[in-house]
């Protein structure tokens, strides 16, 4: 971006123009700010962000965590560019009650605009492709799960969840799952829309009236699960939550035995 842009007789190559841009001191200082900002966002993305999220208890949740970290890293340079240049100009602000003198009169710079479009499109493409790959591997896993998945029928009603295990003949208000066995949730609502969200498992889908929705996952870590409703469903939406557990196969069998035959204490 130079004042005499367009007045040069011999048109330099885009590469030379780019090099000329980076020779300017102000561009270098702004870039330095940008690098600092980028580094900060790298740290947030890599360490702070995941620490806020609950323990991942399935591969789905693990890949969401990874995806959020990578997306933060992809966007860190974007933040770097925008904030680096913002900070630079902010530090060179004009104070006082009268307007500053006119600045340079350049109106555009096709190289910068072109580069900007190419880079932002490329970053967008990376995000799209990465998301599609993740989606694809999730649906591949679904196909695999179908073979030996345990079915859990989830019923959303205003304002409580209930679970039916057809294979085991057990009903419960808590979501109990054996570790490392694929589970297929079949979700239905008996009234308004709800959204079934076992938080630590990283899956979610709405419960609709008369339309069964299906999601699957494989719990791979022992511990407690919070089951929440993520779709406003009326008076006690906030209380439409229940707890659950991922347990060892033996513990799960014990629990099943204890709850078979309608005994649900």
């Amino acid at each position: 971006m130079s004042d005499d842009h367009g007045l040069v007789e011999m048109e330099p190559t885009p590469g030379e123009k780019l090099a000329a841009i980076f020779k300017q001191r102000e561009v270098r200082v702004a870039t330095a700010w940008g690098v600092l900002v980028t580094a900060i966002f790298f740290v947030i993305g890599g360490w702070i962000y995941p620490s806020w999220m609950p323990t991942a208890m399935s591969t789905d949740m693990k890949s969401i965590e990874r995806l959020i970290v990578i997306f933060t890293w992809i966007s860190a340079p974007v933040c770097g560019i925008v904030l680096g240049f913002s900070i630079y100009t902010f530090l060179h602000r004009h104070k006082g009650d009268t307007p500053p003198a006119d600045g340079p009169g350049f109106r555009t710079n096709s190289l910068v605009v072109g580069l900007w479009v190419i880079v932002s499109s490329a970053l967008c493409l990376v995000a799209v492709v990465y998301g599609l790959i993740e989606m694809n591997s999730a649906s591949a896993a679904t196909a695999e799960h179908k073979k030996n998945a345990m079915v859990v029928e989830v019923t959303g009603s205003q304002w409580a969840w209930s679970f039916n295990y057809p294979e085991q003949g057990v009903q419960s208000h808590e979501l109990m799952l054996p570790i490392n066995r694929p589970v297929e949730f079949k979700i239905i609502s008996v009234d308004v829309n709800h959204s079934f969200w076992p938080v630590q498992l990283g899956v979610k889908v709405d419960a609709n009236r008369l339309q069964t929705t299906v999601i699957d996952t494989t719990p791979n870590k022992l511990g407690d699960i919070d089951v929440k409703c993520a779709e406003l469903c009326g008076l006690y939406h906030a209380y439409m939550e229940t707890s659950g557990k991922v347990m060892s196969a033996d513990d799960f069998n014990t629990w099943v035995t204890a709850h078979q035959g309608g005994h649900t204490a």
């Binding site: 240049f85 602000r93 910068v112």
Partner: peptide
Amino acid sequence: EMISVPTGLIFLVILGTLWRGRPW
């Protein structure tokens, strides 16, 4: 996600306007 490209142009326009000026 394609919307991020035209949205990026908005940033470019404002940053380009600020660049090498002395904002009042």
